[in-house]
């Protein structure tokens, strides 16, 4: 293990990473968010979900550096007296949680279907790929909106809707990688051993198509977070009791013109920063793993 880590630090990937300021910034941002959502709740001034801890007297407090601001509420409060910073830390946790779970689920489902379609070909392949084509001909947002409108708000439903939207991308990418790999002679060699199709697929094909998957999955985390934010903003996402960053923007927007600009601008900047960081990292990985750019 130690040896592997050492190898990584000596690797070309790490070397190029250090020489790519965008990638370094991206990773710093992502790590910042990860640390924040993991240990942040232990340090936030408030637990924003605990209604009993809120005091209406604290409502509409501006950020602390403005007139009327208080140290207890560094970024101000909302109309219920909820500390905005605490809400944002908890909101990031929900946004990132949904992003990661959805990417994981859609990646697993999409990869499996893509592997099967690409490896076996034939009718199954045609059927799956037509399904993909049909779904891709609708805007992802529309599909998600439709599902959410039909089933109502909720985490499970949101994850379900976003997974339904997300798997197609993986399925299509995996399928085309499989079509390239399965023509290579090492796959013939595996068949000649006598392995049946699924061992060939999982032991020999899958490990060789992981790199494009990693790239897409990374970038998709950002995309999913944005989609979730949009859905929540439109009022069909997470439940109001546990707001994600998107819902915070929406809540803030409702009072934006009453002069409470902070409660929508700060969560908005958080989303932007997080997605920006993920995309910087994803772009770096894509350039690194794309043999054509080498």
């Amino acid at each position: 293990m130690k040896n592997r880590l050492g190898n990584f630090f000596r690797s070309e990937l790490f070397h190029n990473f250090l020489r790519n300021p965008g990638a370094v910034i991206g990773l710093v941002i992502v790590i910042f968010f990860l640390v924040m959502v993991l240990i942040g709740p232990f340090f936030t001034p408030q637990n924003p979900y605990d209604i009993g801890g809120l005091d209406l007297m604290d409502a509409y407090k501006p950020p602390m550096w403005m007139d009327g601001g208080e140290r207890a509420f560094p970024l101000g409060t909302d109309e219920q007296g909820r500390d905005l910073l605490s809400a944002m830390v908890y909101g990031s946790r929900i946004s990132m949680g949904i992003g990661l779970i959805v990417v994981l689920l859609s990646c697993v489902i999409g990869t499996f279907l893509g592997l099967v379609a690409g490896y076996f070909g034939g009718r199954l392949d045609s059927l799956l790929m037509r399904l993909v084509d049909v779904q891709l001909s609708f805007p992802a947002m529309l599909v998600a909106l439709f599902i959410m409108a039909a089933f109502g708000r909720g985490f499970g439903k949101l994850v379900f809707a976003l997974t339904i939207v997300g798997w197609v991308l993986y399925a299509r990418t995996v399928r085309s990688s499989v079509l390239v790999e399965k023509k290579k002679e090492y796959i013939d060699a595996a068949k000649l051993i006598g392995l049946s199709p699924f061992p060939v697929i999982f032991r020999h094909v899958l490990p060789n198509i992981l790199t494009p998957l990693i790239v897409i999955a990374t970038i998709q985390v950002g995309t999913v977070i944005l989609t979730e934010a949009t859905l929540s903003y439109l009022g069909v996402g997470v439940p109001v009791t546990k707001p994600s960053l998107g819902l915070l923007v929406k809540n803030g927007y409702d009072v934006l013109f009453s002069g409470l600009w902070w409660s929508s601008v700060f969560p908005g900047m958080f989303i932007m920063l997080l997605v920006f960081g993920i995309n910087l990292l994803g772009d770096f990985l894509r350039d690194e793993f794309n043999p054509r750019l080498k």
């Binding site: 290579k184 002679e185 090492y186 013939d188 060699a189 490990p207």
Partner: peptide, 12 residues
């Protein structure tokens, strides 16, 4: 079987 392309015949 022994294959033609030594670069494609071994699982990387």
């Amino acid at each position: 079987m022994i294959f033609q392309d030594p670069y494609a015949s071994l699982n990387p």
